[in-house]
Design a binder for these strands. Structure first.
Lengths: 343, 343
DNA sequence: AATGGATATGTAATCGATTGCGCAATTTAG
DNA sequence: CTAAATTGCGCAATCGATTACATATCCATT
């Protein structure tokens, strides 16, 4: 209904016999404009159902109020929760979030960043691909002076804001918990991937063992892709080898789930025979039987933090702030899969 | 490196001694430009590392290459998968996707739509809130002549493109499957919500019973919010009442999960004593014990379809096309929770 | 009365690309 | 060989808001 034409500041200006610049200033609360005209402008703006054209504003001012957000996979709980967290903060500040996914492919990653830049986003929040070793596309972002915040999957090759959880601590908590439950032969599922987070989890595992005077056993450490099938294969290998084990700390919930399946198929009791701990708090972990003990990464909070860092960097602009790195402390969610001693 | 200044079509024009309009046309492949100048333009564009400014283009042309996507909750598997599907198609056509979430709150929904319009998106793909009964904000989108595609949660109050799954058929398949497994006293978990999809599932349930000459029993139908706790409560109520039942078809996986928990807690065997079928194919359903039979809604494909409808509507523009409604056929995923007869 | 300084608003360029209109130059038709 | 059509490109306005700079008015100061 009403006019199909959108009203612009010129329409308001005409109606009030002032110029568009006055209207623009009035709408922005410029102190050089008298209160009376400000009021009048606001009033007719409302009457004419004025809505600012962000595109025109963006062209002139160079600020689009858009954040480009790049994740490996949109439809994975961890990432979609982070998107949610970012969206919540961005929305409250009248910013909007463009999402793209890389599917862990460098080419997609580069194209997405380029598309973001062409869309003239005000900055980028991203988690880098598993196999990405080349960071020129991100460097371009920084060279343009745009804020870049990395989360979860970060790299030391980029001097910029980062949000990660303390993977070491998460793994340490998980392993310590197994040790406290009486486990002494604890297997670990990890990956060869050159991502720091898995190295950190491995380190946490080793240090926990050390702190309990348990000698690490290389035969209990398995490397793969941390998917369900990997967990199944590792567990079968463990059983086949006859290597004694009474606990498994998997760096991924999926692999832990694979272990749970194979253990149950072989008539082993969880946690009595083998206690099990995963990592990431995937939504399914509370629904397994027994429910899976895991490490919560607080993804929504991670999204909030990433967004806050983003806006901090955005406001600092040229002031050359030192890139901030925020480390979120994980939480061990203890469920039945590892709880031998009833409290 | 290089210039910090972005190169524009004017820079290219200057270097070639032509005007910006010629450059613009050349880049767009306008047939009125000779092949030789086109080649020259392309060449220097590459040399100068030219990247088009979408904002400027958007202001003049009125097309932003942006799609506003509104979902109730970003971090739910069903919705994030649809976002993924939309993003895939949009990306391949050089469109970008802005996401927002309503959290099922009308106010958020209205604000998100308004924000999309202010960002001058080329159209909107949305799933309406559970409690939304007021559609003026969507009508404004249509009045502006922008494409609006609704998915999953739709309404007859809006004449526009829609993508839904055949909820009736999904429920019919599910219930028929239980009947074929020998169940005759099948409970149903549903909701009072005024959303068509649940009514359709109820209808599918009833019709399947009818086709098998099973008389519906009102005492076996439970209405709630379809969350885990609701499923638990309904199942406990069933057991308490002593109402005999040998199967449950839940309109949600979460409620089905609640049922599974309570049944197991009460020493009942699944599927021998009670066969169980859910709806939605939540990721956790394959990890429960026993794995949960459920109905696949093909969310990624639904996203693809929504995006395709969107672009169809976008290209049709003023040609006043009849709003298309696409119905996706669901698939029953049969797992151990309902499989009494081993095939 | 002349000068200075606020205060309030106007002028016009600008952001970068797009596009209707116009006009040469060249080709084709008759 | 001239008129008409086509080809290739320039001119300039435009999208809507922003902003550096200029200007006008009014009051206060000396």
């Amino acid at each position: 209904m009403e006019n199909t034409k959108k009203t612009t500041i010129h329409d308001i200006a005409e109606k009030l016999n002032v110029t568009a610049s006055t209207v623009s200033r009035a709408l922005k609360g410029n102190p050089r404009i008298s209160d009376s005209t400000k009021k009048a402008v606001l009033k007719t703006a409302r009457e004419l159902n004025y809505e600012p054209n962000h595109i025109a504003s963006a062209l002139r001012s160079g600020r689009t109020q858009l954040i480009g957000m790049l994740v490996p996979t949109i439809n994975r709980s961890f990432f979609s929760s982070i998107i949610r967290g970012v969206e919540e903060v961005a929305n409250s500040l009248d910013y909007r979030v463009i999402v793209s996914q890389s599917n862990e492919v460098l080419d997609n990653e580069e194209n997405a960043v380029k598309a973001f830049l062409n869309a003239r986003v005000d900055g980028i929040i991203a988690s880098i691909g598993k196999n990405t070793q080349q960071f020129d596309h991100y460097k371009q972002v920084l060279e343009r002076g745009l804020p870049l915040i990395l989360f979860d999957r970060t790299t030391p090759h980029l001097q910029t804001g980062q949000v990660v959880i303390d993977d070491y601590q998460g793994a340490y908590l998980a392993t310590t918990h197994l040790l406290e439950q009486g486990c002494r032969k604890i297997a670990h599922f990890t990956t060869e991937r050159k991502i720091d987070i898995y190295k950190e989890r491995y380190r946490g595992y080793l240090n926990a063992l050390q702190d309990y005077q348990v000698k690490p056993n290389e035969a209990l450490v398995f490397s793969g892709n941390l998917q369900l099938e990997d967990g199944r294969a590792h567990t079968k290998a463990l059983l086949r080898k006859g290597e004694a084990f009474d606990g498994i700390f998997s760096a991924s919930d999926y692999a832990a789930m694979g272990a749970m399946q194979v253990l149950k198929e072989n008539g082993l009791k969880i946690p009595e025979d083998v206690a099990l701990v995963g990592f990431l708090n995937e939504p399914f972990t509370s629904f397994t039987d027994p429910p899976l003990t895991t490490v919560n990464q607080f993804p929504i909070e991670m999204g909030h933090t990433a967004a806050n860092l983003f806006f901090h960097a955005l406001n600092a602009e040229k002031k050359k702030i030192v890139p901030k790195k925020t480390v979120i402390q994980p939480e061990l969610i203890i469920r039945a899969s590892s709880l031998k001693k009833k409290p």
